[in-house]
Design a protein around this nucleic acid. Structure first.
Length: 637
RNA sequence: GUCCCGGUAGCUCAGUUGGAUAGAGCAGCCGCCUUCUAAGCGGCAGGUCGUGCGUUCGAAUCGCACCCGGGACGCCA
């Protein structure tokens, strides 16, 4: 449906630069060369088409890395795979980095097992430390827009906004690190009839002296929003039922009165909407007040979640309002859109979508999709995005398929190069309650993010008070805030994006096992070593290249070298859970190392220096990984 | 009805373009703190990968059919 070729460009760039020290990339390139020499027919193919199938071995007894290319190639050429494997190893020169490859390294149907030399692990680690992890220069891959957060005016941030904010912030961080220039866009729901309804209600209430607009809080607005929805919603079904079941004139009259009242309120709301659209001064003043109160409260919550969502990232629906009419007129004129049953639609059957995209209602009003079209146009044409990533609920999948297809048809996604920008929906699942329905509190409200943070902080405070009673209360409070953010963000990021998950305080505040606090703990233990070293006057500068001797050191070294590849994978797959899984594994292998390899009390000065070097690398990778996840780090906990 | 997503240990979840004996955490059981933070480490136990058929050297992974759960489907956002 849309062009993904730009992705290929990104891959080529990133792979080339990390090949300096990433064993997988080095081995891939060597094996590819060997494959071409072993099977001359392959020489005619482009390098990308020759898959060397190199992966880290799952089981240490099969070496560090394995190549599975012989089986596939054997099948393709109709030759025994072990024969192909032999031909590959005959042409494979790994003497500088791996133990000698002989026939003994060919296992089973044709796996080639590769074990790296401890000496080369050491030099690869040193290269990695000095090479900015091998990432492309900032911004060198182009511009990516990340659509995140998506709060609505007059609504508290609730669990429904958690995922968009946390996943979006994390993906933005990761894309940036992987070499993209990132522009965050908070597509605030600040326009349209629902906003007009609450504005209308507030105008009435202020006029009646029931509220003081200069003092309203977001809580007040939230209540007004719900009340406005209710009073504009006519209970037509109830009225019909009452009439059908002859429920008595009194009930019918009441329902009739409610319906009449709702009709009147709706009409007033529509009038306010018209005045909003023509920027009527009085109405705009109220709207602006609603906007200020909402954004200030929501951005405070975002900041508590350590998400980088600031006022300058806001590009609300209102900011597109003036662009819609000309855009739609142009689409109609160019015949990209057609009239159907009174509405204006873009037909998409030719790209496999049966449902057309509605961009103008039969009453002339524009829709959600109209604004999204305008947003794509601005993001690609004005902001210069080669990639636009939407962190939005999976239930909007069809909507985005349609909008992407519509924008592509209209030419809005076209770049100066003639290629289409890559439009991606980073869809995420719903947060559910214990009953398997979308999460609500007992009173039927959405759980507010502020309260969620408070709860997690309170629990963290309990735990830390128990564990470190000697710490000052201020310090314990401050640490609790970090632990709460780590716990909440990690829960949201650590499972596959697309999956629903059941919300549970127990899970949110659990600090054992595969959790954010566990990662913080691992980092704190590394930092503690350096603090102790300083206390004892042990130098931690000018450390040598680490010597990889102990099995736990080797496991740690291999894990560290995988880091840049993982970040690049996430920049491509938009799957932060893979970075979580990696960091959890890294924290685990470090913990094992920490247990079995004394650092400060190592057997010799040289062993101590070597282990300190390894610790420094682990500290750097873990801290950076956490930073990408938006988890602030600690010195103590 | 059409389309999309999910189904893996008691529970929560990993499992990358098909690879070797399907892995973690929690809960349970057994060990390990006078030594760099035990929020930890090591070990034990726990599996018809929803079901069936197919593709092949090889399937949790790919194809087809079905079962269960969730979701979306022209004038809401």
């Amino acid at each position: 449906m849309y062009d993904r070729r730009i992705m290929g460009t990104a891959d080529a760039t990133t792979t080339a630069s990390s090949a300096l020290f990433d064993p997988q990339a080095i081995l891939e390139s060597r094996v590819r060369g060997a494959m071409v020499r072993a099977v001359p027919d392959l020489a005619s193919q482009s390098p990308e088409a020759i898959d060397p199938m190199v992966t880290a071995s799952r089981n240490a007894k099969f070496g560090d890395y394995q190549c599975n290319a012989a089986m596939g190639l054997g099948k393709k050429l109709g030759k025994p795979p072990r024969e192909i494997a032999q031909a590959i190893i005959k042409n494979l020169d790994l003497t500088d980095i791996a133990e000698p490859i002989t026939e003994a390294n060919i296992a089973g149907p044709g796996f080639i097992n590769i074990t790296l030399k401890p000496q080369s692990l050491s030099s690869l680690l040193t290269t990695m430390a000095g090479a900015s992890m091998g990432f492309p220069a900032p911004g060198s891959l182009g511009t990516a827009v990340v659509d995140l957060c998506g709060v609505n005016l007059a609504k508290q941030m609730h669990v429904g906004h958690l995922r968009s904010t946390v996943i979006g912030d994390t993906l933005a961080n990761i894309l940036q690190r992987a070499g993209w220039k990132v522009i965050r866009q908070n597509h605030v729901g600040d326009w349209g009839l629902p906003i007009a309804m609450v504005t209308s209600r507030l105008i009435d209430q202020a006029a009646a002296g029931q509220i003081d607009l200069s003092k309203v809080t977001l809580d007040d607005l939230d209540k007004a929003y719900k009340a406005a929805q209710r009073e504009c919603e006519s209970d037509q079904r109830g009225l019909l039922m009452a009439q059908r079941w002859h429920m008595g004139p009194k009930i019918i009259a009441e329902l009739q009165a409610q319906a009449d009242g709702a009709a009147e309120k709706s009409e007033r709301a529509r009038s306010v909407l018209r005045r909003l659209q023509t920027h009527d001064k009085d109405v705009m003043a109220v709207w602006q007040r609603i906007s200020d109160v909402t954004m200030s409260a929501c951005l405070t919550i975002a900041s508590r979640l350590n998400a980088d969502v600031r006022p300058e990232h806001s590009a609300g629906e209102s900011s597109y309002a003036e662009e819609l009419a000309p855009m739609v007129a142009e689409l109609e004129k160019s015949q990209v859109a057609q009239i159907s049953e009174g509405a204006l639609v873009i037909r998409l059957e030719d790209v496999g979508l049966n449902e057309p995209l509605l961009i103008r209602k039969s009453d002339g009003a524009f829709l959600y999709a109209t604004t999204d079209m305008a947003a794509i146009r601005r993001r690609v044409q004005k902001l210069g995005a080669q990639r636009v990533v939407y962190c939005v609920d999976a239930r909007q999948s069809l909507h985005f398929k349609q909008v992407f297809a519509g924008a592509s048809k209209a030419g809005y996604a076209k770049l100066p190069s003639g290629q289409n920008a890559v439009l991606e929906h980073a869809a995420f699942g719903t947060i559910l309650g214990e009953d398997g329905r979308p999460f609500k509190t007992r009173s039927g409200e959405s759980a507010k993010l502020g309260e969620l943070l408070d709860q997690a902080e309170a629990y963290a405070f309990e735990v830390i008070t128990q564990r470190s009673p000697d710490m000052s209360e201020d310090e314990r409070r401050s640490i609790s805030r970090t632990i709460a953010v780590a716990a909440i963000r990690y829960v949201d990021l650590s499972t596959e994006r697309i999956k629903d998950y059941v919300f549970s305080y127990q899970r949110m505040v659990s600090f054992e096992g595969n959790t954010g606090p566990y990662l913080l703990y691992a980092l704190v233990r590394i930092r503690s070593i350096f603090r102790k070293a300083a206390e004892r006057g042990i130098s931690t500068s000018d450390l040598p290249a680490p010597t990889i001797a102990h099995a736990a050191e080797k496991t740690l070294a291999l894990a560290l070298l995988r880091y840049p590849g993982v970040v690049q994978d996430v920049a491509k797959s938009l799957e932060p859970s893979r970075l979580c899984a990696y960091l959890y594994e890294l924290a685990g292998v470090f913990s094992t190392f920490f247990d079995v390899c004394p650092v400060l009390s190592a057997a010799s000065d040289s062993e101590r220096a070597s282990r300190l070097a390894l610790c420094k690398l682990a500290e750097g990778v873990l801290a950076e990984g956490l930073k990408l996840l938006g988890i602030p780090t600690l010195e103590k906990m």
